[in-house]
Design a protein around this nucleic acid. Structure first.
Lengths: 215, 215
DNA sequence: AGGTGTGAATATATTCACAGCT
DNA sequence: AGCTGTGAATATATTCACACCT
């Protein structure tokens, strides 16, 4: 009775879908019409069995003896990831990091459009960057709702992240990408993904320490 | 004969250690001398059994009936993560994102010191930011070795990431944090961690799509 | 009594190996 | 013949439940 994840697709598979999608789009750009699990695995840094197993959860997408049609896969995975239509995002915390994310080309390329900016610093509020005005965080609930923003990207200092989260949740946002090193408390129906660069550095540090020890 | 990970500590535990460490340091700052698994779990967003199991891999660090000594845990986890001494890092790709990372306070706070910057843009090479000159990527092998840099943070455009990786590997770097959405090919003894913000957004998008579908 | 440490039970993920289409 | 799709086997991770120490 393992309900897994809502759809019958395991979490670990979901986490690999964006990766597959990226590689498939590259293949498509190269004009490659068909790909077999082995080749795709090589591109993504996994193995063929993993690819086939993952895809099997999405349905029978391949043709035995032939391989997978690239275009069909792109279509199907985009569908599952819900990125066939553009999704609106807001950036909360417009310091250096927030500004960098605002200009990040990977977002629009993958269907995410930044439509609002927020900060609490009076020196920033009201300023316009690349056509978007910075609103005060207090405005967030109203503005987010009006614009129909679905995703909030938090790039605030650690202590401000929870406040920012509360504001965007009040604005009806159901998905948060948190770049501050702070565990957020949010209602059950709000999805949070935590990105912590220091954490990643510490894990790398562990591996370095391992190597040093082994030497 | 499962050799796990070199030390006997499972990967999944390692990935949680930085989280624990952060919370423990906060407790320490609050002057809390002792913590029990339940409380720490609440702070970190896990459960008590997980905390105890994780810590059991590090040795017998707690006292039955009492709990864990915060200071001892901080010491021990820092030791294991290899963050007791400062580690030197370099940033490759000094665009907006690179610059934002350069100023990121979380790095020095956790013992990571940015000591070199690289780019290929002639307009940036030679400029000085916060006391550090931007070197040309071609200089990287030499400069990294001279400074004893252990970690490279790649913040280049996607197509330049592999080139950057090759250069830092030549400079003796054994740990790479890659913020470009590109799978890197590196020698076996080089550790890579991939951070892809678009990937995270896509996973959030999947969850949104799930919720929409369920409604 | 109150907490840790841990074997056993369960759940999840990956890999293998081969039957089944084309 | 070739490559997918998948049950079975294995490996890894999480959770349970209780013995064991203070």
């Amino acid at each position: 009775m393992s309900e897994k994840n809502g759809s019958g697709i395991p979490e670990s598979t979901i986490e690999r879908l964006p990766q597959y999608l990226r590689c498939l789009i590259e293949l498509q750009a190269l004009g490659v019409p068909l790909v077999k699990s082995e080749r795709l695995a090589a591109l993504c840094g996994t193995n063929a069995a993993q690819v086939r197993k993952d895809f099997s959860y999405l349905g029978e997408l391949g043709t035995r003896g032939i391989g997978y049609e690239v275009a069909a896969l792109v279509e199907h995975i985009s569908q599952i990831l819900g990125v066939k239509e553009r999704r609106k995002a807001a950036i909360v915390g417009y310091g250096k990091l927030g500004a960098a994310l605002h200009g990040y080309p990977g977002f629009p390329e993958r269907g995410f459009e930044v439509v609002a900016l927020f900060d609490v610093d009076p020196a920033k509020v009201g300023q316009v960057f690349d056509g978007l005005a910075v609103h005060h965080l207090d405005e967030a609930p109203k503005v987010l709702r009006e614009l129909g923003v679905e995703i909030a990207i938090l790039a605030t200092p650690p202590h401000a992240a929870q406040l920012a989260a509360d504001a965007v949740v009040e604005g009806g946002v159901k998905a948060i990408l948190n770049l501050a090193p702070t565990r957020l408390v949010v209602p059950d129906d709000v999805n949070v993904r935590q990105v912590c660069l220091s954490t990643d550095l510490q894990i790398l540090s562990f591996r370095l320490a391992q190597q040093e020890g082994a030497r």
